[in-house]
């Protein structure tokens, strides 16, 4: 049985109250807690290193896979390799996420290396949430790496969110797109206290007619620091768009380094980056509805990161 802390972590990262339905793999405190295959989805534990291989049969539709990771034991550090083999023509949702509860004084760290092989014409939605908590002095560290290899005409949507309690994170995402493939990345980050978050995207638009949108929205509070790096390379006739929109508060620091590189005459690339504090008129409007300044600020941030 999972204890109440673990259940709460699971709820935070996956909106689940207990082990999920359908295919899943649940990792708790450094080892596989349980897994389940479905008719079309099989999960195989790796022999040579920690992690799993997830095989999704071609043509699998309207199914989902959950692979949450929970850490509630202080001082645990792990690197996990998860590979997703998504067959041609699939239409599936993959929900990953990591929740750390660290009540001790040692640093807890989870680094997941997720590789997606997206088959021809497959459509996947990948959702990843990171959450940390704990009353000790031990830091919660997460350094996820995502590698995406998209075959022709495939579509991948990746939503990542880190809203609370992660002290330090370096997120690395690399993608390579074949002809006609589309990648949409939506990232949401909120940092507070002394936290640090860095995201680093590299997208290679290799195939003809492929396209990518990388959109990041973030809020940096207190003394926290954020860095947003994104590199989109257009190596064929393609379209690429990266956008970083950050709200800065208190003594926080935000750096945005969007980079676009066209290596083909028909590569259409755009980048946008905006960093600023909450607009005064937004606060005023909500205060004229009876909200206090603090409540107005919360509503604006909640909406922004919704």
């Amino acid at each position: 049985m999972m204890d109440s802390i673990q259940k709460r972590l699971l709820e935070q990262i996956a909106d689940l109250h207990d082990v999920p339905q359908g295919a899943y793999s649940l990792r708790v405190n450094g080892s596989l807690y349980g897994k389940n295959d479905s008719e079309n989805i099989s999960i195989v534990k790796k022999e040579d290193q920690p992690g799993i291989d997830i095989f999704i049969k071609p043509g699998t539709k309207n199914e989902s896979v959950h692979i949450p990771v929970l850490l509630s034991q202080t001082g645990l550090k792990e690197i996990v390799y998860n590979d997703f083999h998504i067959g041609e023509g699939c239409d599936v949702t993959i929900v990953a996420g990591c929740g750390i509860h660290n009540s001790g004084n040692a640093e807890s760290e989870h680094s997941g290396i997720h590789t997606f092989f997206v088959g021809k014409g497959a459509k996947i939605r990948y959702v990843e949430k990171h959450y940390g908590e704990g009353d000790g002095n031990g830091k919660n560290v997460m350094n996820p790496t995502t590698v995406v290899i998209q075959d022709e005409d495939s579509y991948m949507e990746m939503e990542t969110a880190q809203i609370k309690g992660v002290d330090s994170t370096r997120r690395k995402t690399e993608a390579k797109l074949a002809a006609g493939a589309t990648l949409v990345i939506k990232e949401k980050i909120m940092t507070h206290g002394e936290q640090f978050a860095e995201t680093d995207f590299t997208v290679d638009l290799d195939g003809e007619g492929c396209g990518a949108h990388v959109v990041s929205r973030s809020v940096a509070k207190d003394n926290s620091r954020q860095t947003f790096l994104s590199r989109v390379r257009g190596n064929n006739r393609c379209s690429g768009h990266t956008e970083c929109d950050a709200i800065i508060m208190d003594d926080a620091q935000v750096t945005a380094l969007p980079q676009i590189e066209a290596n083909h005459v028909d590569a259409a690339l755009i980048h946008e980056a905006a960093i600023g504090k909450i607009a005064g008129e937004q606060l005023i409007k909500l205060m004229t509805l009876g909200l206090s300044e603090k409540e107005a600020e919360e509503q604006i941030i909640n909406g922004f990161l919704k």
Binding site: R217, N302, G303, F304
Partner: peptide
């Protein structure tokens, strides 16, 4: 005033 993410219902 315009707001990102806040809906009419909100």
């Amino acid at each position: 005033v315009r707001f990102k993410g806040i809906t009419v219902k909100d």
